[in-house]
């Protein structure tokens, strides 16, 4: 079995690490300071597979604050990360349908 430290990660462009906050499941992004932010613009962005894997390993080491970390492709706009695909746009922006909550 491959050790997690030897695992390979393929990336196809700028990549950030995202997860869900443990206490409430809110979407969070792993920062350069090895913390978590609610804002994707704060995410640490890797441009090589090695850097992305290092970030992912650091994120996974935090068992208390976040859960289910994975590498997600991001777009860079004005130097800041933005969601790259529909799934991440929905994770960042919420469901694309209005809430049914009662007034």
């Amino acid at each position: 079995m491959t050790s997690p430290l030897q695992q390979k990660l393929k990336i196809t462009g700028p990549t950030a690490i995202t997860a869900n906050r443990l206490a409430d499941g809110v979407v969070v992004w792993f920062t350069r300071a090895h913390g978590w932010s609610l804002d994707i613009a704060d995410a640490a962005v890797a441009t090589t597979a090695e850097d992305a894997l290092a970030l992912l390993n650091a994120a996974n080491a935090d068992e208390i604050n976040a859960v289910g970390a994975y590498a997600a492709r991001v777009s860079i706009e004005n130097g800041r990360a933005q969601p790259f695909n529909l799934r991440e746009r929905i994770r960042v922006g919420g469901p694309t349908i209005p809430f049914e909550a009662a007034a």
Partner: peptide
């Protein structure tokens, strides 16, 4: 789990047994 005494690997099967999933935005 919240205190860190249980890891996610240990906790996940316990929450699933109670019908709790982790989805895109929340539990």
């Amino acid at each position: 789990r919240l205190s860190g005494e249980l890891s996610e690997e240990e906790f996940k099967p316990l929450r699933l047994m109670n019908g709790v999933y982790l989805q895109l935005h929340a539990y």
